[in-house]
Amino acid sequence: MNASIQFNNVSLSYGEIADEVEVLKSISFAIDSSEVVSIVGPSGSGKTSIIMLASGLENATKGSIKVNGEEIVGLKEKELSEVRRKNIGIVFQSFYLIPNLTAVENVLLSLEANQQYGLEKDAEELLGEFGLSHRMHHLPSELSGGEQQRVAIARALINKPKIILADEPTGNLDSVNSESMIDLLFEYTKKSYTSLVMVTHDNSIAKRCDRIIEIRDGHIV
């Protein structure tokens, strides 16, 4: 199998030399295509940093990161944006929908960033599949937390990305909504052979994944 994401001796530090904090310490791992992986560990262990590095939203201090075979360490902002557009969908804990865009407009944003125009029907269909056909033209402030997260997942999936990075996607949801959200993500990734990398504190969710990567003090345990 080809690796969707490959970390080789990747380190991440913050701050100046005197008070430098090393968040990730020379970690290496690979995630295969259509593999579902959860990243677990205590707070501050570096879980989210892995997602940030894999999405190109943070620069590694050392090491090599490959996304679908393409080295992303050292790329410029514009090139990283392109890598994200073509390969990655991100789901955040706090949903982060754009407040002055409706549900369907938020989903369309991903397509338009990828220069795919006139695909409103696709966005509406996907939202329909997620049970939001009656909420498509509502603003985020008019949606419940669960609905907002479903829109956020639809925004991440509409582009048919090869990799989905999810940072505690159920962190702001109750147990019923959490369950249905995870079902939605798992079902979709299996169906479309997409890799899913998910940071979670929830052991039951982690256990449902193909593999668990545990992080502690910046190391893979």
Binding site: E77, K78, S110, A113
Partner: peptide, 15 residues
């Protein structure tokens, strides 16, 4: 700033 950050995360460059 959140909207701008979201757009960046989706793949829109700053420019």
């Amino acid at each position: 700033n959140t909207s701008i950050a979201v757009k960046k995360s989706i793949g829109f460059p700053s420019s």
